[in-house]
């Protein structure tokens, strides 16, 4: 592989996880939720992490999103080692480099759909009409133009998740982390949301990591990883299961 090819390949890497481990408790009560995970995700890729309940999927996502400090290992987002950063520097990473989409939407009930998106833009230092216009545009692009000023309580599950996606994309993050985004959606809207994330990854050049139980969305992934007991493992039942992920990078 030539030097230029290596450089291009490195530039495409959005997320690089090495030896990521999280142990809760200590001594006899110690529990290893995530155990030496290695993972690389590139621009344009949609990776789905599946596994049984308690396998460490959400903990892994929390660690990647810098919401939890790992016991050991590193997480690089766009080449930046977020595990080495001070706590005070992490909000900046979360604002600009990571977009979260949550299972239970986590929309702010006091705000309208458009305000839920706009508030994230405000946090990033924006303000004024520009943020409102961008928030409206994002929601309109996601088919929510007719529900901009509805409060979350007046939206359906699918609509709430679209607002959540719009919020996750608001600050143009390179990495999108979605935790069970289809869990509360029906068979029509669930895959629709993942299709949307796939389109965002492909068309906007983002990397998306989706944690899910939902077998309906397997075929939409570029890669599916099986997490069990905090480690990536082979699962013959999965349509896509790149064995190399469980040890080193893809």
């Amino acid at each position: 592989m030539g030097a230029q090819a290596v450089e291009t390949r490195a530039a495409e890497i959005v997320l690089e996880v090495r030896g990521l481990t999280k142990v809760f408790g200590s001594g006899d009560a110690a529990f290893t939720a995530v155990d030496g995970i290695d993972l690389t995700v590139r621009r344009g890729e949609l990776v789905i992490i599946m596994g049984p309940s308690g396998s460490g999927k959400t903990t892994l996502l929390t660690l990647i999103g810098s919401l939890l400090k790992p016991t050991s290992g590193t997480v690089h987002i766009n080449g930046l080692d977020v595990t080495a950063m001070k706590e005070s520097a992490l909000p900046e990473v979360r604002r600009h480099s990571v977009g979260f989409i949550f299972q239970s939407y986590n929309l702010l009930e006091s705000l309208t759909a458009v305000e839920n998106v706009e508030v994230v833009l405000n946090l990033a230092g924006g303000g004024g009409r520009t943020d409102a216009v961008k928030a409206e545009q994002l929601l309109t692009d996601l088919g929510m133009g007719h529900r901009l000023h509805f409060k979350p309580r007046d939206l359906s599950g699918g609509e709430k998740q679209r607002v959540s996606v719009a919020r996750g994309l608001a600050n143009d993050p390179e990495l999108i982390l979605a935790d069970e985004p289809t869990a509360n959606l029906d068979s029509k809207h669930g895959p629709e949301i993942v299709l949307l994330l796939r389109a965002v990854a492909k068309e906007l050049g983002r990397a998306a990591v989706v944690v899910s139980h939902d077998a309906r969305i397997q075929e939409l992934a570029d890669r599916i990883l099986w997490l069990e007991d905090g480690r990536f493992k082979d699962n013959p039942g999965l349509a896509v299961a790149p064995a190399e992920e469980k040890t080193t990078e893809v």
Binding site: L67, S88, R94, H96, F100, N106, L108, L123, A124
Partner: peptide, 16 residues
Amino acid sequence: TRDYGVLKAVGASPWQ
């Protein structure tokens, strides 16, 4: 509490 947690998760600084 959850709202503030969400805001922290999406990048709000403690001062904000």
